[in-house]
């Protein structure tokens, strides 16, 4: 491979390392470091194919997603062949409005979401099964469109759309469970509820 390609890849990889690691953590949890490492090696083999330097960040994320997908398959799990248990329809908004012990406030729902840190969101996402978490992360955290996600995961578009739908439902439900476990709605004020709930546990 040409030295110029390698130098460009090294620069790109250094710049994108935090973002790649964050995506790897969302997808693979504890295996994130290993996943990034294999991604870098695979990117090096393919770096001659990257013509547009501006596309580099997304190109690396696509490779990382491919590596993750291949690992899942190697463990005998195909993202599209897992049992489909249709979660009962769940609306976090409706739940918050109904379960709120305090007088209704127009800003309640925003206040509740404001108590979740980025780390909380990461932990909530970890509660989703792999095949639902991946489309949610790729769509809403990384900003890929559904066609790109279908290509990266090698799944039909319809499968991705239904996984995305179920994943969003489960994300809302998992946020609610997390709020309940933290004692969110038992607190007199919403603003400090999660931190206070954590302290008690």
């Amino acid at each position: 491979m040409e030295t110029g390609h390698r130098k460009a890849l090294q620069q790109l990889a250094r710049r994108e390392l935090p973002g790649l690691y964050a995506l790897a953590r969302h997808l693979a949890g504890q295996d994130a470091e290993d996943l990034v490492q294999e991604t870098l090696v695979r990117a090096c083999r393919a770096s001659g194919k990257l013509d547009d330097p501006g596309a580099g960040p997304r190109w690396l994320r696509a490779i990382l997603t491919n590596v993750w997908r291949d690992r899942l398959r190697a463990r005998g799990r195909r993202p599209d062949e897992l049992p489909v248990d249709e979660p009962e329809h769940f609306s976090l908004y409706a739940t918050l409005v109904e379960e709120d012990p305090l007088p209704y406030s127009d800003t309640l729902h925003v206040d509740v979401l404001g108590t979740f840190s980025a780390q909380d969101v990461h932990l909530v996402l970890q509660r989703l099964p792999d095949h639902e978490r991946a489309p949610v992360v790729l769509r809403y955290v990384e900003g890929f469109d559904t066609y790109e996600i279908a290509a990266m995961l090698e799944l039909p578009l319809g499968t991705v759309l239904s996984q995305l739908h179920r994943g969003r439902q489960r994300f809302e439900r998992a946020l609610w469970e997390c709020a309940e476990e933290s004692g969110l709605l038992e607190q007199p004020t919403h603003g400090t509820a999660v931190a206070a709930g954590r302290g008690r546990r």
Binding site: A22, V110, L113, V121
Partner: peptide, 14 residues
């Protein structure tokens, strides 16, 4: 708001 929450970058995760 939920979508905005999902886009919040994970700080200092590396």
């Amino acid at each position: 708001e939920l979508r905005t929450l999902l886009r919040t970058p994970t700080a200092a995760s590396l």
